[in-house]
Nucleic acid binder design. Sequence first.
DNA 1: CATGAATGAGCCTTCATTCAT
DNA 2: TATGAATGAAGGCTCATTCAT
Lengths: 238, 238, 238, 238
Amino acid sequence: MFTPDEHGFTGGSVTGSPGRAQDADQAARVVRAEWRTRQLLSAAARLMERDGFHGVSMQALADEASVSVGLIYRYFGSKEDVLLAVIVEVLNAFDATVPAAVEAAGADPVERIAAAFRAYCGVINTHRHAAVLTYRESKTLGTRHRDTIKSLEVQTTAPLRAAIRDGVEAGLLTADVDVELFALDLILLAHAWALKHWYFGATLSFETYVTRQTALALRAVVDPAHRDDYRHLLAPRT
Amino acid sequence: MFTPDEHGFTGGSVTGSPGRAQDADQAARVVRAEWRTRQLLSAAARLMERDGFHGVSMQALADEASVSVGLIYRYFGSKEDVLLAVIVEVLNAFDATVPAAVEAAGADPVERIAAAFRAYCGVINTHRHAAVLTYRESKTLGTRHRDTIKSLEVQTTAPLRAAIRDGVEAGLLTADVDVELFALDLILLAHAWALKHWYFGATLSFETYVTRQTALALRAVVDPAHRDDYRHLLAPRT
Amino acid sequence: MFTPDEHGFTGGSVTGSPGRAQDADQAARVVRAEWRTRQLLSAAARLMERDGFHGVSMQALADEASVSVGLIYRYFGSKEDVLLAVIVEVLNAFDATVPAAVEAAGADPVERIAAAFRAYCGVINTHRHAAVLTYRESKTLGTRHRDTIKSLEVQTTAPLRAAIRDGVEAGLLTADVDVELFALDLILLAHAWALKHWYFGATLSFETYVTRQTALALRAVVDPAHRDDYRHLLAPRT
Amino acid sequence: MFTPDEHGFTGGSVTGSPGRAQDADQAARVVRAEWRTRQLLSAAARLMERDGFHGVSMQALADEASVSVGLIYRYFGSKEDVLLAVIVEVLNAFDATVPAAVEAAGADPVERIAAAFRAYCGVINTHRHAAVLTYRESKTLGTRHRDTIKSLEVQTTAPLRAAIRDGVEAGLLTADVDVELFALDLILLAHAWALKHWYFGATLSFETYVTRQTALALRAVVDPAHRDDYRHLLAPRT
DNA sequence: CATGAATGAGCCTTCATTCAT
DNA sequence: TATGAATGAAGGCTCATTCAT
């Protein structure tokens, strides 16, 4: 699990109050701090998805979150940090969701690939607001932040790449599949769901989208010899 | 072919001079104007791809193009107009390239699909700078401009969609292919080449990328009965 | 009394603090805000009278008022709004001064006319800087603002017109007096005091100016039969 | 007659063409130059009256006059010079009109005053566009130009002041009339005709305005003993 | 004489960030 | 902790003026 440098609440000793009461205070403080953070990130994601990073002023963000401008700076060092945190939140959600989904799919590599893809799409669907930001505003961030994201993305897509590799090695996928490339394509298709409103209209439901894309993608790589085993994935009724 | 309202050089023909000489003047002026436009758009694409629309100031643009700020406004009404023009230039390039490439590929729908995809990728490779902008900065533009782009994109992808539809109807592609979805996916894969430096590193050559993606995509849709006919596309040696 | 929409300090009362303390805060804030406004308007009037609306940059205004440029925009939405506020201030001063002066002059219509005129001149003398702006920069403002001013001016000159009308009806002024025209002329003569430095030099004192103009104007309209009653106005010793 | 420093067409010897032909050339040139000047000043007056000095760009002026921007600078040294020339044109018109009108009115001082006033109003009515500029944009001009205007105005109002002085000395006006002040008032009333559209609406015709103002003003100063002699001026039927 | 492309200083305005309360 | 007044750098854009043709 990744935790950005959200201003490092070390919560050091303050002044001179007894221990027990202080602990309670601290706990309450932490709770409130987390609530604030969530409140702010949620507002930021909503606003930035709609108006873009540069289209959202700190004042607007403060208004949307019903706090003062100054308070934002207690939780984030700069406007860029807010953006980074929003993006990181999505990437963390991948890490919190995808591995579990893959595990739940059982041992079969092809099933795991399908599960991973579906989980990716699910996270993107949930954080649709923020997901677009990853694409649109990465260049906005400085190199350091960008590297943070980059490595998070690699880490995040690891389960998918692993499943694909397993599939090839198990002979379930054709031997000539380029693991990296296929993984990239699946990620792209997942992201496309977030971009699709603007690019595509609202013709497909989420379910249909995932099912069809899964079928399309897998048909390209499943070894002909095992096609029948995955008919439920390759030729869905929808 | 689309031409944005680049400020409509009506040019005020005035009093009473011959006409031949004036025509020459006008012609020379138009030539220079077009040169300036190209010069500016090229600089804009380079800079905006690197720093994003908001990261490029008009001053910076002027410097990069070695002109004064004021002059930019003779050719574009606003900063947004510059962005629009950059984007439109790519889209026009599609229109100028793809249909010809498709025709040159002969009558076979599958060959035409492959040719269209390759052509798309080629245009994106050429205008790599500008292509990224289409993704990143569309939200930046006002609704009117956005609609302009949207309709251009639809128009631009028409040849590809047509070829796919033909393929399905000719029984070369499996009957259950979702034309729109498959077209979208191919476009995405083409665009991905522009996004890949940031997303992927520089492992693949353009040739390899196109060949492999073509194979991957087509394998998902070509009817098993015709696989052998397209072995050169489906199972390239690279 | 007119109050322009000076940015409507709604002020965001937030969480849950007592109220008394907050009220005090709010009150203090309002006081400071009003002080700022006055400070800014005063600087604006001074500068604009000297250099004209277009001759004063926001930077210059900020410097003169010893604040930052940005702060001006907390109090006024735009440069035009500053001009409007300056002008409105004068017009409000009329409303706050003239009626009282007229009342204090007693019931006699002629005395009331003289008192109104003197009061007008007094306000203009006090706000000499700003008064000139009304003439010079009305065209600068947009139609909406211009209408605001126009209706304020009408409202502001009402007491004078009423007194003249009463005078005519009471038979103190000759029956053929054109009420509107005579009122306009008096207003003009009052404004002329503000324009006179540039137009006239500094030969006359305020007192002398008012007294003489009153005499001159009234002599044109007071009915010969009542001349003697107003000798103190018609033939002053100065 | 005043002639501003309109770039001093000394029209010196050019190169080496014969005398006669050159003279013709010169003449033609001068004619065209004057035509251009008039064309430009007319356009400038129209535009500036509508949009104010600062609201008119040199480009707009060029367009309105159907010439190029560059050409304007052959006739006027700067934008300010254009404004000055426009204003000076009105003041010259006074000089060209008022004295003649005064002479034509005969020897009677009161008649001369009335004639002068009517002539002033007439000029202002004709150059209404430009007249407003005198008020609105004098501050725009530098000190030097402003002094030019000031002295022109003094020179221009001389006939009126002379007539008033004569009237007082002849005992036709009451002895206590302040010559300078009364002259100023009359000039103001004349100018008011130009300002009135904005200040007053369009209720009065020019004729009515002049007649009524003349009556009003003269009634204030004509000696009671001579009232009957000027009944046609003091109590017009309109 | 005439044109209009080109320049660049300067203007209004916004907004991230700070800090006294 | 929380507020929001205050700052000032920077940005987009305009426009008077020049100059090569």
